[in-house]
């Protein structure tokens, strides 16, 4: 094919090549059959490559690692390399011994540290989602109702922080919230307080950090559903006697539900497993599961327990992830239908 091109030059060469091919085909049918078989072979080879490469990549670097985590979560901790016991062992007489140690999971359940961390992660993620929704919804609504040129500017402003470093945006809050930070300095300079308020490393700073980091993820899907909504629906509601606020409650809010769910999931899911924000902004006593996993792995070097924590965390996230996937699919179907 590439030789064809060189001979005929770019642009419009395809049809000429085809015409010439058709010309030769008229002469002999055998040629034709050979060509199509060759074509079919290349097509199948191309298809195989397209499917094969990403498929293999994901099997090797996504599924396999996950299975390894699953495996190690059933092993026991030992000091050595690797720092866990093997699941399979050859016993004398040709038997294979499979040792599934569920002790790691029992340990998670028994030690209040883990249970508290799980519950606390859910709580923090939930309230962060609610706060992000409360701030994000009016923003998304206002952007969707702005004039098209303003809309583009606002969207750009929502997306822009996402392209700057996440870590640095979290870091910015340390300077604002710490004891001799900007807020405390300002309040003390105004004479409103004598001693600095403890703002950093509290629940408050944790929420601020999470909401701040994930706000764009809330605003964007909300904006997408609100912008798509037919304005005449609101006019119809008002025409039928509905006051604007009630029209919002009965029409806009239910219809923006897919955006609310998508945005909430985009905040909730990563917030549950968040490590950086609780580590930098959270207090010493704020236990979150991502942080527990991190310290279990890096500080205690207990791979089996860390793996068990990971598996348990995934189980915890399965429900919201399934909801999210379901809504994503519905969105996609709706987009196709319209």
């Amino acid at each position: 094919m590439s030789e064809d091109n060189r001979a005929l030059g770019p642009g419009g060469s395809a049809s000429r090549a085809e015409a010439e091919q058709a010309w030769t085909q008229a002469g002999g049918g055998g040629d034709h059959r050979r060509l199509t078989r060759l074509q079919r072979l290349t097509a199948r080879f191309g298809r195989g490559t397209v499917i094969g490469v990403p498929y293999l990549w994901l099997l090797l670097f996504f599924l396999l690692p996950f299975l390894i985590v699953l495996k190690i979560s059933f092993a026991e901790f030992r000091i050595g390399v690797p720092p866990y016991t093997p699941l399979l062992a050859w016993l004398e007489g040709g038997y294979i011994q499979v040792k599934l140690a569920i002790g790691n999971y029992l340990f998670l359940l028994q030690d209040p540290l883990y249970v508290t961390a799980y519950l606390n992660s859910l709580k923090v993620a939930f309230f962060s989602t609610v706060f992000a929704l409360l701030i994000g919804y009016p923003m998304a609504y206002a952007i969707a109702r702005a004039s098209p040129s303003w809309r583009a500017v606002f969207l750009l402003l929502v997306i822009l922080p996402f392209w700057t470093s996440f870590l640095i945006r979290v870091y910015a809050w340390i300077g604002i919230l710490k004891n001799n930070g900007l807020i405390n300095n300002a309040l003390m300079a105004l004479g409103l307080i004598d001693d600095p308020l403890p703002l950093l490393n509290t629940e408050f700073s944790l929420y601020v950090g999470i909401v701040y980091s994930y706000l764009p993820f809330m605003v964007l899907p909300l904006y997408a559903t609100l912008e798509r909504m037919d304005v005449s629906l609101l006019e119809a509601a008002e025409d039928l006697g509905c006051r604007p606020f009630k029209a919002f409650l009965t029409v806009t809010l239910p219809l923006s539900m897919p955006g609310i769910v998508a945005g909430s999931m985009l905040v909730f899911i990563p917030a549950v497993g968040e490590f950086v924000i609780p580590d930098l902004l959270g207090g010493a006593d704020t236990l979150m599961i991502g942080k527990v996993l991190w310290s279990e792995f890096f500080n205690n070097r207990d791979w089996p327990v860390a793996s068990a924590v990971a598996i348990a965390m995934l189980v915890l996230l399965v429900i919201p992830i399934v909801i999210f996937q379901h809504y994503q699919q519905r969105q996609a179907e709706r987009a196709e239908a319209s």
Binding site: P54, Y55, L58, L59, F61, F62, L63, L64, P65, F66, I68, V69, I72, V81, P82, M265, I269, P270, V272, G273, E274, F275, G290, L293, W294, F297, W303, A306, S307, A310, M313, L314, L317, I321, F324, Q325
Partner: peptide, 29 residues
């Protein structure tokens, strides 16, 4: 495949990191 290509979007980073590290260690040995 659908599962594998979409899961990384929602997978907590700590889990992705942990699982890949364990893979690399196992492969290495």
């Amino acid at each position: 495949f659908t599962g594998m290509i979409t899961a990384p979007l929602v997978m907590p980073e700590v889990i992705t990191g942990l699982s890949l590290l364990l893979l690399f260690v196992s492969l290495d040995t």
